[in-house]
Amino acid sequence: MTTASTTSTPTSTPSASVAPLLSIAGLVRRFGGLTAVNGLSLSLADGELVSVIGPNGAGKTTLFNLITGLDTPDVGSVAFAGQDVTGFAAERLAGLGLARTFQHGRVFGNLSVLDNVLVGAHTRLRAVRPPLGLPLLGPLAELGLALLPPAAVRAEEERLRAEATEIIALFGDRLTPRLDKPAHSLSYANRRRVEIARALALKPRLLLLDEPTAGMNPTETAEMLEIIRGLKGRGLTILLIEHKLDLVMQLSDRVVVMDHGARIAEGLPSAVATDPAVIEAYLGHKAVGAANQDDAAAVVPTKRGIGE
């Protein structure tokens, strides 16, 4: 499957004319003989929620890694907020306002829930910002501020704690009673919530969610849907990877379908769901024996409502 033959959907979306917040062009990433991402282009406007769907192994997570700087593309470029950020390190991109969650959950197991979320606010700390721009002075000043915190730093810490507690409260009383529990003691679903809370603590300009409802039961999935809807309502720009198509259909402004690393369809949720190429990609994979029953069932659009 090549890039040329893929785009079967309109490229002009309602917001594409405004300067995009994120725009990637011609991304390629190969692992040995396997091309995980194959000439992918995509752009995302401020306030938009775009979903990336596709069968297992389509290259979605790899795409996220390329955007967030954990991996570097072999070819292609990534621009964020008008700046070419290709090859920027992950930590630098976080500083620019990019936050992500991980598919399998990468919470800090032995840190408390609150500390996990506070690490999310790392880039916003006063102590982290370089004073005078001298290379060695920054870390030393940070050490000084940590050991002998002046009032302003202590106040900041208090403020962030309050804020983190507030973010955690977004999830109702799923997490709040467990604020001081180590993350390894949480259920799988709760760890996903901690990840999202951690991402929100960064005050991101762009939030990338990699299968936020994986492993959640229908009730939990419905809750998560509401939370994401709320975030979108607050104007947050979101790039979402999700296998549960109901959720995708309800939330997305636009859907990008990937297979074998390339975009095979893009457009409004309703249009994509009926695209023959998409159905072919999913069914074809399913026929070969999709490894994951859950996912295979979920990708076939059904009339089943969320939370049923």
Binding site: T68, L70, A89, A90, E91, R92, A94, G95, A99, R100, F102, R106, V107, F108, G109, N110, L111, D115, L118, V119, G120, H122, T123, L125, A127, V128, E142, L143, A146, L147, P149, E157, R198, L202
Partner: peptide, 28 residues
């Protein structure tokens, strides 16, 4: 004191998962 400051959680975050830590702006 260091461990109870923000440095404590930052350093431990590196230990727990350096990739996630990097993604949240922690310069390893």
């Amino acid at each position: 004191r260091l461990l109870s400051s923000h440095l404590g959680r930052t350093l431990r975050a590196i230990r727990e998962d350096d990739v996630a830590a990097r993604s949240y702006g922690v310069d390893l």
